Simulated assay, not measured.
Amino acid sequence: MNLEWQYSTPQAEGMDAEMLGDLDDFIKQKRYRLVNSVLVVRNGKIVFERYYNKYNENTRNQIKSIWKSILSLLTGICLDKGMIRSLDEPIGDYLPAFQRGVHPYHKAITIRHLLTMSSGIFWNGGVHYHCPMVEQMKRTRDWIAHVADVAMKDYPGSSYVYKEWDVLLLSAVIGNAFGNTSYELCEQLLYKPLGISSGRWAESPCGVSYTVMKGEEHSNLSARDLAKIGFLVLNNGIVEGQRIVSEHYIKEMLRPNDNNSSYGYLWWILENGYACKGFGGQEINILPKQNIVTVIQATPTPSSKTYGDIHKEILEKSVV
Rank of each mutant, 00 (worst) to 15 (best):
M137N: 02
R139L: 15
T140K: 14
T140G: 03
D142I: 04
D142A: 09
W143V: 11
I144Y: 07
I144C: 00
D149S: 14
D149E: 15
V150E: 14
A151M: 12
D154P: 04
Y155G: 05
S158H: 09
S159Y: 09
Y162T: 12
K163H: 14
E164I: 05
D166Q: 08
V167D: 10
V167H: 09
L168Y: 07
L169E: 03
A172D: 01
I174A: 02
A177M: 08
A177I: 06
F178M: 07
F178I: 04
N180M: 11
T181M: 02
S182V: 08
Y183T: 07
E184D: 15
L185R: 03
C186A: 15
E187G: 00
E187S: 13
L190Q: 05
P193W: 03
L194T: 05
G195E: 09
S198I: 12
S198D: 06
W201R: 04
W201G: 02
E203Y: 01
S204R: 01
P205I: 13
G207I: 13
G207Y: 08
Y210N: 02
T211L: 08
T211H: 08
M213E: 13
K214M: 06
E216I: 06
H218Y: 12
S219H: 04
N220H: 11
N220Y: 03
L221F: 07
L221P: 03
A223I: 02
D225K: 02
L226V: 10
K228A: 05
I229K: 00
I229T: 05
G230E: 08
F231Q: 14
L234R: 00
L234K: 02
N236L: 13
G237T: 06
E240R: 09
E240H: 08
E240W: 01
G241E: 08
V245S: 02
H248Q: 14
Y249F: 15
I250T: 04
M253P: 01
L254Q: 03
R255C: 12
N257F: 05
N259G: 00
N259R: 11
N260P: 04
S262C: 11
S262N: 15
Y265D: 00
W268D: 12
W268H: 13
I269A: 10
I269R: 07
L270R: 14
E271K: 14
G280V: 10
G281S: 09
Q282W: 00
Q282V: 11
E283C: 05
E283D: 13
E283L: 15
